[in-house]
Design a protein around this nucleic acid. Structure first.
Ligand SMILES: [Mn+2]
Ligand SMILES: [Mn+2]
Ligand SMILES: [Mn+2]
Ligand SMILES: [Mn+2]
Lengths: 224, 224
DNA sequence: AAAATTATTTAGGATAGACTAAATAATTGT
DNA sequence: ACAATTATTTAGTCTATCCTAAATAATTTT
């Protein structure tokens, strides 16, 4: 039951998970780009993962890959580690949300299940990481995420920032300076669909902020 | 300045450091045993470390290895990580001293200098790990360790337990049950050098304990 | 429906770090 | 001093994971 998956394989599975969240198979090139690896190498690894016993991915030449059940569980395991570690570093060592990603990227592969459990318990089993990403439960169920992109919000609508899809330090710092942090309450004052610009009131701030699509497509909100 | 040392190399250097603390070069076989690797493989790695530029070890065929300055600093870096992590896990996650070693063994290679610094700061720059081993300072100076083996203690002498040289869970649990933990105060009631047995009063305990060399050579004390 | 372009796979090679078996050097016992 | 034993090194393989270049398949453009 505890056949070891290498760091490399764990990374492949994690990225395949993320690329297939939309229901579509992950293409070789997309994977190669995300992993920073040559497409030819990705093909090789995919073939290996597909023909391992039991298979971790299912694969048809030129059609892309999807995860098998086994592969999905392994991916969720890594993602749980990553997100718990991020939350833990922020909560116990005063890291800010723009600094934790790279650290978690390395730690995710080496913590034991025991350490995972202790970290989770110490924080009361958090449901989200510092960027608002849902943390899979200990039995590897991914919490449902009902958030929508800020860019999809209608005029005069109120919502709460629930997630930021970015690991870019500069963007995260910038969002923080605008008050657009997880939990912030916002209201759309002006929506210009044509040139993809939006004016927004952040509760507790004096001036409204003007945002382009580089931001409104990466910041997610929940209407409640 | 930041050429990457692999996990494997870090482990070699760490074990060479420990094996050469007595001033003697580390032999191929001793290293092989500690690393759980075939002697032939160790020879190969040693040759590589010796001929790298700059060299991490100095080596003469059949004479064993010692660390160069560069190698020693790298070893101290790993040891500092290991011991800080052990201390941190015990202090913040309620691990006990017999559970932290394996976890630290993996984490030591992947934490950043930033994380190291935050961990150290969070604990107020501790000088010893949970087993009493000294923690190298941030600038990689190993604190002097004046402790002596319990077996060397004279009759009627009082001392404080300062270090336990073992990663064996069973032994550590046993010592804990005897009250022989770091900081415990003890006094020798009876010393039998011939059959290497010792009777000891642990302060705060009712009954004295009788200890054989398997324990008295691994438990270290400071006379103060 | 070709042609051009883009995506993917195959083939061959490199590197790191391990292994085993055989050769050699060092040490120990007589 | 010689033989036996033990320690170490060399030589040849193996696995994992990456690479580049060339071949092929799929998709898009004209
Ligand atoms: Mn990773
Ligand atoms: Mn886990
Ligand atoms: Mn290690
Ligand atoms: Mn360090």
């Amino acid at each position: 039951m505890t056949e070891h998956l290498t760091n490399s394989i764990q990374d492949y599975l994690k990225h395949i998970y993320e690329l297939t969240e939309d229901g579509q198979p992950a293409t070789t090139t997309a994977l190669a780009t995300r992993l920073g690896i040559a497409p030819a190498s990705v093909t090789g690894m995919i073939q290996k993962l597909a023909s391992s016993e039991p298979a971790l991915v299912s694969y048809r030449k030129h059609q892309g890959v999807t995860l098998t059940d086994k592969g999905r569980r392994a991916a969720l395991e890594v993602i749980r580690h990553h997100r718990l570690i991020e939350a833990w570093l922020v909560q116990t060592l005063g890291y800010s949300w723009d600094e934790v990603h790279n650290e978690a990227e390395k730690l995710e592969h080496v913590i034991s299940e025991e350490l995972e459990a202790r970290i989770a318990a110490a924080m009361g089993n958090p449901l989200r990481d510092p960027h608002g990403d849902p943390i899979p439960s200990a039995d590897l169920v991914m919490p449902e995420d009902k958030s929508m992109a800020l860019s999809g919000l209608a005029l005069k609508q109120e919502a709460m920032v629930s997630k930021v899809e970015s690991q870019d330090t500069d963007l995260l710092k910038h969002l923080e300076s605008l008050g657009l942090v997880i939990g912030a309450r916002v209201k759309t004052l002006e929506v210009s669909r044509y040139d993809q610009v939006m004016r927004l009131q952040v509760r507790g701030r004096n001036e409204p902020v003007v945002l382009g699509p580089a931001i409104t497509n990466r910041v997610f909100v929940e209407i409640k």
